[in-house]
């Protein structure tokens, strides 16, 4: 079908995604043609947004490393902004948040320059240490712990975790592994986002038994298992093109991405339920906010990064 040996592996995988996207667009188009009610409006908005997201992502990842880093830093900024806009905070936290925002360019300079030592300790060690201090300078100790804890958690997920996706690009190209770091980013992004879609589709088609009805009533065992199998299958298919992984490690990576994606999803479902909101934002039509789209990616990225780093580099 595809003769991938002679083509750029990253370009090839982008070709596959666009093929899938065209198929999805046609299917949703037919569904809307048969039943032109509001029930398919969201689905069609979602597919439309996928086009935008995939085009932007492809350009960001293919053009140059600097553009990739800028792209992921913008993603971090938008996600952190959504996060601080939905959590309850105090007026006294305003200056703290200003400093918290400043961690984003700093962290991504470490990503861009490949300064792994600084990249890995900056937020968990230095910011973790200094942020509470900046918070107490304001002098308001009512709700101090709550503010420090919520802001730190937000930074860990929206900045530290997301920056791991961009950091993957520093994994080198070898003779057998032509796609290099960009290939690993593609591998993670495709499987993670694909896992979200697969869990949704399997859940819609066969979902009966809820896993965590109190947190996320729409998540079912059928969706989770269907998604997991799809993702593992995808991992085995994509690994030879995009990664240096052997078969057993590809299986492991597929299981990790599928399971962590699910955990990331329900973690944010719990957060949103706690805050009594449906979506974190409205930035992406049909999907909600940036945070709704990349919650599972944020939680999966550090796991995938460190597993790959430990076993392969």
């Amino acid at each position: 079908m595809f003769n991938l040996e002679n083509t750029d592996p990253v370009l090839g995988s982008i070709g596959i995604i666009f093929t899938l996207l065209i198929i999805a667009t046609i299917i949703v188009g037919i569904m809307r043609f048969k039943d032109n009610s509001d029930s398919f409006k969201e689905l069609s908005d979602r597919v439309k947004s996928w086009w935008f997201m995939i085009v932007i992502f492809s350009v960001a990842i293919m053009t140059s490393p600097i553009i990739s880093v800028v792209f992921f830093s913008i993603l971090s900024f938008l996600a952190f902004k959504e996060y601080v806009s939905i959590i309850p905070l105090r007026q006294a936290d305003r200056p703290v948040l200003f400093w918290a925002y400043l961690t984003i360019p700093i962290q991504f300079v470490f990503v861009g320059t490949g300064a792994y030592g600084l990249f890995i300790v900056f937020i968990p060690v230095w910011v973790f240490f200094l942020l509470p201090f900046r918070t107490l300078i304001a002098g308001n100790t009512d709700g101090f712990l709550k503010s420090v804890a919520t802001i730190s958690w937000g930074l860990m997920i929206t900045v530290f975790a997301i920056s791991h996706t961009a950091m993957l690009m520093h994994f080198p190209t070898t003779e057998t592994h032509l796609a290099g770091g960009v290939g690993l980013i593609m591998f993670l992004a495709i499987l993670n986002q694909g896992n979200d879609v697969a869990q949704y589709v399997w859940g819609k088609l066969f979902g009966k038994n809820p896993i965590l009805p109190k947190v996320s009533p729409k998540k079912t065992w059928e969706g989770l298992i269907g998604g997991l199998v799809t993702t593992v299958f995808g991992a085995v298919l994509l690994a030879p093109i995009l990664t240096p992984f052997d078969l057993s490690f590809s299986l492991l990576a597929g299981i990790l991405i599928g399971a962590a994606g699910f955990i990331g999803d329900v973690t944010f479902s719990a957060l949103k339920r706690d805050l009594k909101i449906k979506d974190a934002g409205s930035f992406i039509p049909g999907h909600g906010g940036i945070l709704d789209r990349i919650d599972s990616l944020a939680l999966t990225a550090p796991l995938f990064f460190h597993m790959t780093r430990y076993f392969y580099y």
Partner: peptide, 15 residues
Amino acid sequence: GKSLPRGEALLVPFI
């Protein structure tokens, strides 16, 4: 009012 309240010169992004 969170992003740029009265009397503040520092803009902090909030949606």
